[in-house]
């Protein structure tokens, strides 16, 4: 880790803070996956890892290598763009397939594909 000695203090402090907060948010998202009760609640937890954790850790890496200037910081930019584009697609598809399976099994906890929803738009089919 010899190269990190060259990092000035004003850059080292934000790098450390961003790194620690990003990994803490990631850990919180993973704890949410363990703690939440139903699948649909768990579906919210990985968003915490991708929108919070990836962004903060990639920013800290960008600051570190941008200040040191010993390599290009293209990879972090690519990873962040890629995460922003792919996460919603993954979670939407997973949610849809879970909904499809629950409906096929006639699970009473998920809303059916209702006809009543047509007549009353304000209907709220809660759990």
């Amino acid at each position: 880790m010899t190269f990190l000695v060259d990092l000035p203090v004003w850059a080292a402090i934000p790098v450390c803070l961003l790194l620690l907060s990003g990994s803490a948010i990631t850990l919180a998202g993973a704890i949410g996956i363990v703690r939440f009760q139903s699948f649909y609640e768990r579906l919210h937890a990985p968003t915490l890892c991708t929108s919070g954790g990836v962004l903060l850790i990639a920013t800290s890496s960008m600051i570190a290598f941008g200040v040191l200037q010993n390599r290009w910081i293209v990879h972090e930019v690519l990873i962040v763009i890629f995460m922003i584009v792919t996460t919603p697609v993954t979670l939407m598809l997973l949610g849809q397939s879970a909904l499809y399976r629950d409906r096929a099994e006639k699970n009473p906890e998920v809303p059916r594909k209702t006809e009543t929803a047509k007549t009353d738009p304000k209907i709220d089919i809660g759990v």
């Binding site: 979670l91 939407m92 949610g95 849809q96 909904l99 929803a117």
Partner: peptide
Amino acid sequence: LTTTPGTAWLEYDRQTRMLLIH
């Protein structure tokens, strides 16, 4: 809506224009 951690998009019905979110 899906990137926001508090909400998740589940289904959109084209005929009824109803959107189901969690």
